[in-house]
Simulated scan of single mutants.
Amino acid sequence: MTPSRRLLTVVGGAAALATGAAAAGIAFAAQQRRSAVEPGERLGDLRADRTCTVAADDGTPLAVSEVDPEEGKPELTVVGVHGFALSQRSWYFQRRALASLALPRVRQVYYDHRGHGLSGAADAGSSTIEQLARDLDAVLRSVVPEGPIVLLGHSMGGMVIMELAQQNPELFAERVCGVAFLATAAGEVGSRGLPRSLLSKYNPLTRGVG
Rank of each mutant, 00 (worst) to 15 (best):
T2W: 03
A186N: 12
M1C: 09
A102S: 13
A30W: 12
R47L: 15
S65Y: 12
M159Y: 01
G20M: 05
I129G: 02
S4R: 14
A122L: 05
V209W: 15
L103N: 12
S197Q: 13
P169M: 01
A15I: 13
L164M: 04
E66M: 08
P145T: 02
G158Q: 01
L132T: 03
R114Q: 09
G187W: 04
G208T: 11
L62D: 00
Q108C: 02
R141T: 06
E188Y: 04
G13L: 15
A85L: 15
A29E: 10
A183G: 11
S100N: 08
W91S: 01
F28L: 12
P104D: 06
L171Q: 10
L46M: 11
L205E: 12
A97H: 04
R175M: 06
A18V: 15
L198Y: 11
S119D: 01
R105V: 04
Y111T: 02
L86A: 12
P69S: 07
Q131A: 09
T2S: 15
A102V: 10
D68P: 02
E174M: 04
F93M: 05
A16P: 04
E70L: 15
H154M: 03
T77R: 11
I129D: 03
A138S: 13
S197N: 10
V78L: 07
D135A: 02
L199C: 10
A122T: 13
G125M: 09
S35K: 13
D112E: 05
E38P: 01
R42P: 01
G20V: 09
P195V: 01
R5K: 13
A21N: 07
R89I: 13
V81T: 08
G59N: 09
S87R: 07
G157E: 00
S65V: 06
E188K: 14
L140D: 02
Y202W: 13
T60N: 06
E174F: 06
A55K: 10
N203D: 12
G13P: 11
I161R: 00
Y111N: 02
T184W: 00
S126R: 14
S87K: 07
T128L: 01
G115E: 01
R5H: 11
V10L: 14
A29L: 11
A102Q: 14
L98K: 07
L103V: 09
M1A: 12
L76E: 05
L132Y: 14
G72Q: 07
A56D: 12
E71D: 12
R89G: 08
A85R: 15
I26R: 15
E163K: 06
I26C: 11
A27E: 14
E163T: 05
R207N: 08
S191V: 00
L199A: 13
S191A: 12
D123C: 01
S126Q: 10
R105N: 04
S35Y: 15
M156N: 04
D57E: 15
E170V: 07
L171V: 00
V78R: 02
L132I: 03
C52V: 09
N203S: 05
A29W: 13
G153W: 01
S127F: 14
H82A: 02
A18P: 11
V54W: 08
L98P: 11
D112V: 05
V109I: 05
Q94E: 14
G83T: 06
T2C: 03
G193Y: 09
R107W: 03
R207S: 12
F28H: 14
S127G: 06
L136A: 04
N168I: 00
A133R: 00
P61M: 08
D137W: 03
